[in-house]
Design a protein around this nucleic acid. Sequence first.
DNA 1: GCCAACGTTGGC
DNA 2: GCCAACGTTGGC
Length: 163
Amino acid sequence: MRYWLLKSEPDVFSFEMLCARGCEPWNGVRNYQARNFLRAMRQGDLALFYHSNTSPSGVAGLARIVREAYPDDLQFDPQSPYYDPKSAGGEPRWSMVDIAPVQALPRFVPLDELRRLPELADCAVINRGNRLSVLPVTFAEWEAVLQAGGLDPARLGEPVEVA
DNA sequence: GCCAACGTTGGC
DNA sequence: GCCAACGTTGGC
C-alpha cells in the first residue's frame, strides 16, 4: 500500500465533483515525473486530494486508486488541449489512472496548517514553486494529514457515524 | 492579477 | 549539450 497526493484546481475538478461522479479517470498529466508516479500506483493505493490555486489551498478529501495506469486517451484527441501529436501512432507516452472518492476530511486542512505539521517538513507540497501535480507521500505524512483533518487513520474506511 | 519558481523548447 | 526565452503552475 502506498500513499499519494493529487493536485487539482477545484474550479476545474473538485473533490466534491469526484464524489458526485463516483469514479474518474485522472487524465491530462503532461509531466514525466508525475506520469512516472501515476505508473507506480497500484490498485487500492490511497491519495490525498489537494485543492490547488484556490483560496485557501489544501487537502479536501481522500481518494483511492481503482484502476492502474493505462493510456490517457486525450493524448490522441486533436480537439483536446491535452493532445500530443508525438503520441500518435507510436507508443502512447501519457498515462492515467482511475480514482474513486473515499471520504471528505471532516475538516479541510489548509496549506498553512500543512506547513505547521512537523511530519510534513520534507513534503514537496509545502514548498512554494513546487509544480508537481502527482507525488508520493510517506505513511507518516499521510497519518499527520488525516489527523489534522479530524480522522483516525486506523479507523479509515469505517462508516462515518451521523450524530 | 502579479510574479516566483520551475519545466520545456529551440537556437546555436 | 548549453542556456536563454518562453509558457505554466500555483501561492499570495
